[in-house]
Write a protein that binds this DNA or RNA. Structure first.
Lengths: 389, 389
DNA sequence: ATTAGCACTCCATCGATCCAAGTGCTAATA
DNA sequence: TATTAGCACTTGGATCGATGGAGTGCTAAT
């Protein structure tokens, strides 16, 4: 949609003013606000036109105008397409804070949670961030071990030092020798492959090559393959849901309750993440306004999403959810900033301490070294002989 | 505090009625409600007495009465001390639903999340559940392995098949032989010990016995010990925060925002958990009413907490947070029910399939077998000889 | 000791009124 | 022809007062 320059400027002025105040904005306000020297009467005429075009609307007859979804859309598209020189400034401005925040963390989980919080705090909107996908990440290392007579522990390390593990119950204990063979077998066949390359056929092939054929071995191979293949669950971290109370248009019981609920359940957010990963927006940033929201219950909101990339193929989504009158400029700026920061994370970093953190989850950010892995190799177990001491 | 029977009955009637309606309750209502055949005038007199005792109060001069914190307290204490026969019924009633819900899950995380949700749905209040402590759980198995030249993977399995892992960055690669020695050393010295028994002194001892003395080895031992010793972080799962909107006294912006925020941050909830684990209430259930709340920002709420036990020493806390006028009877019933269910989880269960679940977290509920572990043993690696094929 | 009766208090509700902000239209102006 | 000043009109929100219902405390009767 093309718009005469003057109308466009008036529209922008309306949108910007409404973003700030949340109040319908009248002709007089615009007249004073813009540098086009026009009287309120002229503005009124233009506004009548804009309304006819469906870009703005008035809540009731004698009120000012507020942007429609289409109005926002035009505003946002214009913003995204034009070179944003201010963004540079905003990025700089935020860098300090970010630097502190993004100090090397032990656990990916904590990092993501912190990023979510930073986003929420610095924008005053609700935020979310999804864990990165690992579908195309390569397997680095597999290890099975007999924890006790009934349980085998399987640990799989994938690129980025993400760790998956599981205890596999077994009917009877495996001999140490078989266990070692199994380890070699799995490592030789699976290391270096991307997670998505592990097919059922491949697994069957491995079973045939196993040499030893017991039900147990087959079960264990299946279980191990399952861990690798298992659709990694999409985890979503959120923060600042209570920020919605800052915007009266979202803060009534009905709406607030729904939004809070969606934030707790994560289900709805997940569909936004899917949507984002599917379609690529300009600059990697996508904006859904009101009715465009993938989630019906959030049709009073807008969401700005972006895809971040941690390492090769490890993509995730960050999102800011707020009222339709959100400060899109600022949000996009913050977003690009964070994207940059996250992208930088897997580049070589300064020497760091061996973090004292630990826990069930993995350590994705090996302190003090590059995030990517030089080459895949098979553990150097060649042949093993077991003797009593 | 002792109260004449009649006054007690009137108090209970007031509380119960207020719990239901949320409206101040008048003398006439009570007169009709109770089976003591008394006129409203008599009730009025008694109510005046109760008010003097600080058990009830009127929001304004010409309104009915509502219970004070002290009034609630008396009511709750009475309820908790008397044998609750209705509870039995409620337990039965809920069992079916629970059985479905508590089907063997792969991941502790998912289980806890589901329990939280169940609590929230069945009570209509907000709920939380903390991950169980593992301080006194025993170490079952330790394994270090060289993932790549710069990284050593440490995996520790503790009782209940909980898994902790971490990638330890190293300056130079360890020889296979040293790695094996290290594994043996750690397993021999640490397996069977409770997490809290691992002292710094013990670690030093191990280092001295290591035989091989390089900085690397020491670092790795330190890192491994750190994982074990690291104060396990208290994870808290919540659900149903949006339920607070169902209670007008909590649903105004100010309060709602605070509560939601506390639920997101988990910080405040954590202090409730600590408090609960510290003091033992009757039946393992504790109730904090209004001003008794450990968290200042939640002084308009009540919380009912209970300690559940998964296995030996694995204790966690469940909690229901709602308005002061919460249905304490029901909540306590549901609570006891869930406690029982969780307690039963580590008793032998029917044969189950080898679950297809996996992920970064552990599998605490080894399907198809007892949750507790028969005996600790050292992995049967005795002596290793490495040869090229 | 209990109860009926009554005067009193206070809040919630409803309607009426008023006011500010903003519009659309018309006529004057550059 | 585009812009502007002026004006009548609309409308929702705030304010105010009156009304009525629910509940109380007190007194006198049972």
């Amino acid at each position: 949609m093309e718009l005469p320059d003057r109308k466009m400027r008036i529209l922008k002025a309306i949108v910007r003013n409404y973003l700030e105040t949340g109040e319908p904005v009248g002709s007089r306000t615009i007249s004073k606000l813009t540098d086009l020297k026009l009287s309120s009467a002229t503005i009124r005429n233009e506004m009548a036109d804009l309304e006819e075009m469906g870009l703005i609307t008035q809540p009731h007859t004698s009120a000012g105008r507020i942007p429609t979804d289409a109005g926002y859309r035009l505003y946002v598209d214009d913003m995204l397409s034009s070179e944003r020189k201010e963004l540079q400034d905003e990025r700089k401005q935020l860098l300090d804070m970010q630097d502190i925040l993004l100090e090397r963390q032990g656990k990916l989980e904590n990092l993501l949670q912190k990023v979510a919080k930073t986003l929420a705090v610095s924008t005053n909107y609700a935020s979310m961030i999804s864990s990165p996908t690992t579908r195309s990440s390569k397997i680095k290392f597999i290890q099975l071990s007999q924890v006790d007579p009934q349980n085998v522990l399987a640990v799989i390390v994938i690129e980025g030092n993400l760790i998956r593990n599981k205890v596999i119950p077994v009917e009877e204990e495996l001999s140490a020798e078989n266990m070692l063979k199994l380890n070699m077998l799995l490592n030789t066949n699976l290391c270096g492959l991307a997670v998505e390359e592990i097919t059922l056929g491949l697994i069957e092939g491995i079973k045939r090559n196993a040499g030893i054929h017991t039900a147990i071995i087959n079960d264990v191979i299946d279980a191990a393959a399952e861990i690798v293949r298992s659709e990694e669950e999409l985890k979503i971290y959120t923060s600042g849901a209570n920020n919605i109370f800052k915007y009266p248009e979202l803060a009534d019981h009905q709406r607030a309750s729904e939004i809070i609920s969606d934030f707790e359940e994560k289900q709805a957010l997940s569909s936004i993440v899917q949507e984002t990963l599917a379609g690529e927006g300009q600059n990697g940033i996508q904006v859904y306004i009101g009715e465009e929201m993938p989630v019906a219950r959030m049709r009073d909101c807008s969401v700005v999403t972006a895809t971040y990339e941690l390492g090769e193929g490890m993509k995730g989504t960050i999102g800011i959810i707020g009222p339709k009158r959100m400060d899109y400029d600022k949000v996009v700026g913050v977003m690009q900033n964070i994207m940059g920061q996250l992208g930088d994370l897997y580049k070589p970093a300064g020497k760091a301490d061996a973090g004292t953190d630990s826990g069930q989850a993995a350590d994705p950010l090996s302190p003090g070294q590059p995030f990517t892995i030089p080459e895949i190799r098979i553990p150097q177990i060649k042949r093993i002989e077991i003797k009593e001491i």
